[in-house]
Design a binder for these strands. Sequence first.
DNA 1: AAGTGGTCTAGACCACCGC
DNA 2: CGGTGGTCTAGACCACTTC
Lengths: 273, 273
Amino acid sequence: MSPTPASRRKASSHLPSPSVAAVPLTASTSPMPPALALYQQIKDHISRKIQDGSWPPGHRLPSEHELVAQFGISRMTVNRALRELTEQGRVVRVAGVGSFVAEEKPQSTLLQIANLASEIRQRGHDYRCEVLVVERISASLEVAAALDLRLGDSVFHSLCVHLEDGVPVQLEDRYVNPRVVPDFGAQDFSLQQPSEYLVRNVPFDQVEHVVDAVLPTAEQAERLAMVPTQPCLLLTRRTWTRGVPVTVVRCLHPASRYRLGSRFRADGNPVFG
Amino acid sequence: MSPTPASRRKASSHLPSPSVAAVPLTASTSPMPPALALYQQIKDHISRKIQDGSWPPGHRLPSEHELVAQFGISRMTVNRALRELTEQGRVVRVAGVGSFVAEEKPQSTLLQIANLASEIRQRGHDYRCEVLVVERISASLEVAAALDLRLGDSVFHSLCVHLEDGVPVQLEDRYVNPRVVPDFGAQDFSLQQPSEYLVRNVPFDQVEHVVDAVLPTAEQAERLAMVPTQPCLLLTRRTWTRGVPVTVVRCLHPASRYRLGSRFRADGNPVFG
DNA sequence: AAGTGGTCTAGACCACCGC
DNA sequence: CGGTGGTCTAGACCACTTC
């Protein structure tokens, strides 16, 4: 077909540039109703070239100006397509030089870590949290290192068990920097558990996650109502506000009752349904 | 508006109103950047309102039109700021209705799963892969289910050990759908290991990850040169092309030699350095 | 009908790169 | 110098929701 892409939309004054209308933007297999956005069609076109090997890594793509001419669309539209491809790591752009197919598939993919309580409730199960300990103690070497404090400095400590339908699924061992959250110890955690309190009152701007596999100690196993020979997933999370450590929490999950998982599309978006 | 169209960019002095002044939030850490883009200033302005609680979750933000009037900038610029905030999950927009502060953002955070070989090389260590098995076998019930095949259907199977400085860090147990990758069995995996071959030749459009903690079997422990009483991280990955399962791979890591980890900013971008 | 966001245009200025 | 990308404008049409 040759309907110039820009022609489908407006009855306004300009004429769609009669240029070489090389590529029909509304492709053959495309049904008509969704009528994909132009920038999306450009993204798809370029993605296809990259994925089928026509444009190998390092290959220079057409400049914005060339794409404008080729497709008969405006530069803003081309720019948006290229910008989003850059954000997705498929394209590398250098001002004053050009745009290039990114080297090395960013083989790194993402794993989504959901909120435990919502996850449980979303399954239609009962969620409950038992707060076992809230205290103020002296920082061990490890805790001091994690929170950028000195050995022996005072820190808040809380210990909770999270239960799904009455079965323990997480033992949450948390340390909180009192310089950032001085009121942590004065909270009523029967109304709002420690993590909820922090999420609502101490916004963070950085998060670090580490996932380990470990065997629980005898005490941990007892609190999780499991045998100590079964492995656990250990999710350690640290958060910062303006560069200052806020809290470090070690979430211990019996592997038989919990797994991390998520499904993503190649564009980095989660899959629903 | 009729003030100078593009004349004032450099000044950047024009974030609006008298009421809100620049906050020392970035004062110390910011290396005095060269005049932030307008859309970025709008993003920052809105982010600040959200983060300091002025605009709680569910709060309706000013419409694009209002922001245009308030800041004296064009709608495209406002639109870009709001679009990017939406992509980052801080704002929810509904056409015909309005823009709202997203509910509960820390609902889910992301964990980045990097490419093992690059990760090892980036540490300055030696990376090597030993291909132990490449064969064509009958699908077990589990494999058939994972690849959407029938019990007993023919599938490719490969088994590799990945080593960091000669020490096994991953046992890769892979099954490949021959309907999608018929040539898998004919490859020379001494030049290009299975995962490299697949990444380069069979682009996927969906990925699923599941992380477990397990104890290795005696055979697995032997191949990983570890004791079978130590736990392992098990990363199971499935990929699809156009809805058809391509491969399922189970990556077993001795927990003592490997952990998953990553650090993100609140805006969802990884932290470097 | 009025308001909202989603998209697009045809220009424009700028900083930067390589020649 | 011309080419490149990064940004911005002042309009516009559309589909949609709400009143």
